[in-house]
Design a protein around this nucleic acid. Structure first.
Length: 558
RNA sequence: UGGGGCGUCGUCAAGCGGUAAGACACAGGGUUUUGAUCCCUGCAUUCAGAGGUUCGAAUCCUCUCGCCCCAGCCA
């Protein structure tokens, strides 16, 4: 369940203060402004949750707005994916907004700046621009075109719009201060010629506004009150404010910056994720090992777990590297509460109950959730031939191992106590079958004589089960910081991030499993049907996350 | 000695002059027909460092150190 953060983070506090001072007539309007040039990942989820939750908490609203001012990079498929992902995460927006819907207004504001002598058409080449810009420690120089007349600027800008010039020939710049210590204020470009069709406006435009010009005006046009963005835009805030202060617009949103998140053992940047995909390290944008929201969805992550995680990590201005274990903990919290329990054996070992009547089958009742009797019971079938987990048998077990071993008795979950009588091996010396006896007096799992068994293991009826492929996922990188020592992060990949097991044996009830429905395979972890590769003939289950395993910890310690 | 930002437990993170919340992780213990869940217990004499102000400082002042971001006609 979603935990409430008792205390507010700094953005929440700013909003509260604004509300207390009646700053925006009590309105709170935020926005999530992705550029549709890729798929959403966990980093975006933090922003989505922050923006939508601030709106929810203060009875305001949050717009989904596509920041689509660069047609060279943007595509409709990304727009569609982003919309569906935001909905899946659990947030409602009525109709999406698009910066491209403001292209006319943006153009008019640019003309206003020109008329006020606050913008000019510059005809320096890209290289010359770079030279004139100066460096971090040296001021820039004024462009020789800086003092063109308003008339000439208007004419040139009009001709840019009409397609008279090629890309790069002329650009429109704000006239601010070439000597500013803040490079963003050194006469930034606000419009450029780009002869590319736009996914939404088609061929209507051949000039497109730059981010700094587009974003603040889009915010103002939508009546955004709090424009939340990440830290790297801190240096852009003076420009954000300058533009709104120099055009005629009645609204001036407040930009507030927060730190983006990092998580260990993975990467969270479009560029790096893109590389993993293009180099074939993973199968695509929705590979279950990726921290993309589509990948996590396919893996079995629930929207609620992700929302809770975003809540728990907080919001601050400190750069962070969050433990993957925190994410997994949020996931397990949700899954433990909500996933029905079933039994599946992923590395089967045959068991024959020598004293169980040949040909007999019986049906046992198993709890769907031990902590929730109201979740009911299901039927599982039992016979003389079973499968148990290879890991649950040791020929020469240490004292603390309380599973199966020669002569040992264990409980089969929701069934009977069995005792291992004989171990059958193949020529290679591998254990291939266990001959056991069962105690007919222990149906359900308790011995009438009160004797205790330490171990309970899961099992499946060999004569009534389904065959499935299991995909075990592990962290994508070996090192908690994939880029440690500035080495190429791809060299740090975990070669065992995916282990595929064929012919796992699952209880029959899983036949009706639906993609995205997560089950707890008792004692193993949480699994869900793969939404892409599964077929009725050959079900494929993804391991969402393991159960916490203190035994594994003890075992590796010794 | 360009500008901007950040430094509180292994990791996040509260704290806003009155004497270090919480979560994850970790370590013990209890319950348990999942070695799961659940429940207890422990885990920063100290807040990047050094000075100073104050009866009192993580919180105020000064200096120092460290880390991140910025020189796209990307967002």
């Amino acid at each position: 369940m979603e935990t409430q953060t008792a205390k507010g983070h700094f953005i929440e506090n700013i909003i509260k203060e604004d509300l207390a001072g009646n700053k925006n007539n009590g309105r709170v309007v935020t926005r999530f402004p992705p550029e549709p040039n890729g798929f959403l990942h966990l980093g975006h989820a933090k922003s989505i949750c922050l923006n939508f939750k601030m709106a929810q908490q203060f009875n305001g609203k949050c717009n989904l707005r596509f920041d689509d001012s660069n047609p060279a990079k943007e595509k409709q498929i990304y727009i569609d994916s982003i919309m569906s992902t935001v909905k899946w995460l659990g947030f409602d927006y009525n109709t999406p907004f698009y910066a491209s819907d403001y292209f006319d207004a943006l153009h008019d504001f640019a003309v206003e700046l020109i008329k006020k002598g606050k913008a000019y058409v510059c005809s320096l080449s890209a290289e010359e621009m770079k030279e004139y810009r100066g460096t971090l420690t040296e001021p820039g120089k004024n462009s020789p075109y800086r003092d063109r007349s308003v008339e000439e600027n208007l004419d040139l800008f009009r001709r840019m719009k009409e397609g008279e010039f090629d890309e790069g020939e002329h650009i429109l710049r704000a006239k601010i201060d070439m000597a500013s210590p803040n490079i963003n204020m050194r006469d930034p470009v606000i419009y450029r010629v780009k002869k590319a069709p736009h996914p939404r406006t088609g061929d209507k435009w051949c000039i497109y506004p730059m981010y700094d010009f587009t974003h603040c005006i889009s915010d103002a046009l939508e009546g955004i009150t709090h424009s939340l963005c990440s830290l790297e835009f801190e240096d852009h805030r003076p420009l954000y404010d300058w533009i709104l202060d120099n055009i005629t617009i009645p609204c001036h949103p407040q930009q507030i910056e927060f730190a983006r998140m990092n998580i260990n053992y993975t990467v969270l940047s479009k560029r790096k994720l893109q590389r993993l995909i293009s180099e074939g390290v993973v199968s695509g944008w929705d590979d279950p090992r990726l921290p993309t929201l589509e990948g996590m969805r396919r893996r079995g992550y629930t929207p609620s777990a992700i929302r809770n995680f975003c809540d728990v990590i907080g919001v601050s201005k400190k750069e962070s590297r969050i433990d993957m274990s925190l994410l997994e903990s949020c996931l397990r919290d949700d899954l433990n509460e909500n996933a029905p329990r079933v039994m599946g054996v992923i590395r089967p070992l045959k068991v024959t109950l020598e004293n169980y009547p040949q040909g007999q089958t019986e049906t046992l009742a198993a709890m769907n959730h031990p902590q929730k009797p109201e979740a009911g019971k299901r039927e599982v079938s039992f016979s003389r031939h079973l499968y148990v987990e290879q890991d649950d048998f040791m020929e020469d077990p240490p004292k603390k191992f309380f599973r199966l071993g020669p002569g040992r008795e264990v409980r089969l979950r929701a069934a009977y106590l069995i005792t291992c009588k004989e171990v059958i091996k193949n020529e290679a010396g591998e254990v291939v079958e266990l001959i056991c006896t069962y105690d007919p007096e222990t149906r359900g799992g308790n011995a009438p004589d009160g004797r205790k068994v330490k171990g309970t293991i899961h099992w499946v009826n060999a004569q009534d089960c389904i065959d499935a492929q299991i995909r075990l996922y592990d962290r994508l990188f070996k090192d908690e910081n994939p880029e440690r020592d500035s080495q190429d992060f791809v060299e740090n990949l975990n070669p065992d991030s995916l282990e595929t097991l064929e012919h796992a044996k699952l209880e029959r009830s899983l036949e009706t499993a639906e993609p995205e429905a997560v089950y707890q395979f008792e004692r193993l972890g949480y699994f869900c049907l793969d939404s892409k590769d599964s077929t009725p003939d050959k079900p494929v289950f993804n391991r969402t996350v393991t159960l916490r395993d203190t035994w594994a910890k003890v075992a590796t310690r010794n």
